[in-house]
């Protein structure tokens, strides 16, 4: 580690794959939009929210002509990753194809989104891009939304993990540092429904060859991926942990 990164700019985390997020001193809960530029297809991943739209948009513009974006992937429907979509539609005067689970497609129109949907569960959990590159989708129900779906890019071996592997931390860096597992636990203990459900879902990742995990909150994991998977598999979580507090 130890490299100096300029967080005021988009950061290329892999060939043609960019982090378009932002930093905020006083926030423990940052969001991470990403972008895959695959030539004929450009996929925006978890684009972000209303208050950060302008920052996000200027970073987007710095890496591609925004008009080239044709797909948007969202892992679920939360406002921190979806409310920027109608603003983007308006700014570019165009619509997109949104890659997500059917359960999410029912909720997204309530944000005023006009784009069409590609329900990944209706298409064999995959999408082949024009270049032949394949995106795979892995279902992670109830972690934390019933339709939660994460995306794996076969070419880069990056897992775009939605809320999974996200962290809650004021001591943020783009790439996970020494104590990131603790930041990750702090988030998951509150947002994940139960140890059994989390373990069942996270175990699905073991058959993938993952080089990097890029979550929608917190830091990117690029070393010791297995250690973080194990940490989530063994995490005690769920509201019943607070029994007796009410």
């Amino acid at each position: 580690m130890g490299e100096e990164l300029d967080y005021s700019r988009a950061i290329e985390i892999h060939d043609g794959i960019y982090w378009l997020g932002w930093t905020e001193e006083n926030s423990a809960f940052r969001s991470n939009p990403y972008l895959i530029d695959d030539g004929e297809d450009v996929i925006l991943i978890e684009p972000g929210s209303v208050p950060h739209f302008n920052t996000f948009y200027s970073k987007l513009e710095s890496v591609v002509e925004p008009e080239r974006v044709n797909y948007i992937f969202v892992s679920h429907q939360d406002p921190d990753l979806c409310t920027g979509i109608p603003l983007l539609e308006e700014r570019l005067n165009k619509t997109f194809t949104i890659l997500t689970h059917t359960r999410t497609t029912f909720l997204l129109p309530f944000y005023g989104i006009k784009s069409r949907y590609y329900a990944v569960d209706m298409h064999g959990w995959k999408l082949k891009l024009k270049s032949g590159r394949e995106l795979k989708f892995i279902f992670m129900p109830y972690c934390h939304f019933p339709g939660m779906t994460v995306m794996y890019d076969e070419k880069s071996k990056i897992l775009f993990s939605g809320d999974l592997f996200g962290g809650l931390s004021y001591d943020w860096s783009l790439y996970a540092g020494e104590w990131y597992i603790e930041a990750m636990k702090a988030f998951h203990e509150h947002y994940m429904p139960s140890k059994e459900i989390l373990r069942h879902n996270v175990s699905k990742l073991e058959k993938l060859d993952i080089a990097m995990i890029a979550p929608q909150h917190g830091s990117i994991i690029r070393e010791d991926v297995q250690r973080y998977i194990e940490a989530l598999k063994n995490l005690e979580c769920g509201e019943y942990m607070l029994l007796g507090e009410e």
């Binding site: 809650l168 702090a186 005690e236 942990m241 607070l242 029994l243």
Partner: peptide
């Protein structure tokens, strides 16, 4: 508050166990 919230579930779980 975030400092307390961030370890509340873990502490409860620890005491129970």
């Amino acid at each position: 508050e975030v400092s307390v919230i961030s370890c509340r579930v873990a502490l409860n779980s620890f005491f129970m166990k």
